[in-house]
């Protein structure tokens, strides 16, 4: 029998409770999901059972993971950051501007690094052959963008408000609207792939992917803020979303010496 939303809600509640118990027992705040989060069914066979082997980067500051691949202007074209202009016609939907800063755990900007995004169109359909959701494709929207952060770590995209979409995790499963982000830091150890959500989405309580982040404050950090000053008159609504990359990097070591 197919799992219902009620089944998944109960599993998510149990995971939340288990996390609260861990916290009460003195365990640290969990900023990231656990890889074995069963309410998201695809994780069941795809997470390691053995604990990760810890590498103390201070013992070997030369390790290649403490550096990052380089990206530059020749890796981009002028309209890569404007997903509404990549086809001959205008895509359907509400235009939005998404902007923020990419920072490290010290709050310092990550400069000149690659930010990649992808998303569904306004009807909740991805341009992808494996995507079988019966919502219309938009011939004027592929839903992929790319940019480099500026000298203050800032990025900015113009795109279309993505629609929510159904998926097969359980019966009547719907993903809240989101934009996928891929980020590089100054070290490969800071690599991040994540998703940005929009404020006040009624689907939040039902989504096991969002709730794989069991810490409520950490979950909030995935939700962009509407910012009127970012809205472009007669054109688009503005959302602000800062991104903080985790993981050790070489600058820490230099300062720690």
């Amino acid at each position: 029998m197919a799992l219902t939303q009620h089944d998944i809600d109960q599993e998510m509640a149990a995971e939340r409770e288990a996390y609260e118990k861990r916290l009460a027992g003195g365990a640290p705040v969990e900023h990231h999901p656990r890889r074995d989060y069963a309410p998201y069914r695809s994780s069941v066979l795809r997470h390691p059972r053995q604990p990760a082997v810890a590498i103390d980067v201070t013992k070997d500051p030369e390790m290649v993971e403490l550096s990052s691949p380089a990206f530059g202007e020749r890796d981009l074209t002028a309209i890569d950051d404007d997903l509404t202009r990549q086809h001959p016609g205008e895509p359907i939907g509400e235009r939005i501007t998404v902007s923020g800063r990419v920072l490290d755990r010290e709050g310092r900007p990550v400069r000149g690094q690659l930010v990649e995004i992808w998303q569904a169109n306004s009807a909740g359909r991805y341009a992808h052959q494996r995507e079988q959701h019966a919502a219309p494709l938009d011939p004027n929207f592929t839903g992929t963008g790319r940019t480099l952060t500026d000298g203050e770590g800032r990025y900015r995209f113009t795109t279309i408000q993505p629609g929510p979409y159904p998926w097969r995790n359980h019966e009547n499963a719907w993903r809240p609207a989101h934009i996928h982000f891929s980020l590089f830091g100054s070290a490969f150890t800071q690599r991040l792939v994540t998703q940005m959500y929009f404020p006040n989405d009624p689907l939040f309580p039902h989504d096991p992917i969002l709730h794989s982040v069991t810490d409520p404050a950490a979950r909030q950090r995935l939700i962009a803020t509407y910012e009127h000053g970012l809205s472009v008159p007669e054109f688009s609504l503005g959302y602000h979303w800062d991104i903080v990359l985790d993981g050790p990097h070489a600058t820490w070591l230099e300062e720690g010496r």
């Binding site: 494996r130 995507e131 982040v213």
Partner: peptide, 11 residues
Amino acid sequence: PPTPSHTVGPF
């Protein structure tokens, strides 16, 4: 605090 990770998904 860091931005949490999420799956890359299928698309």
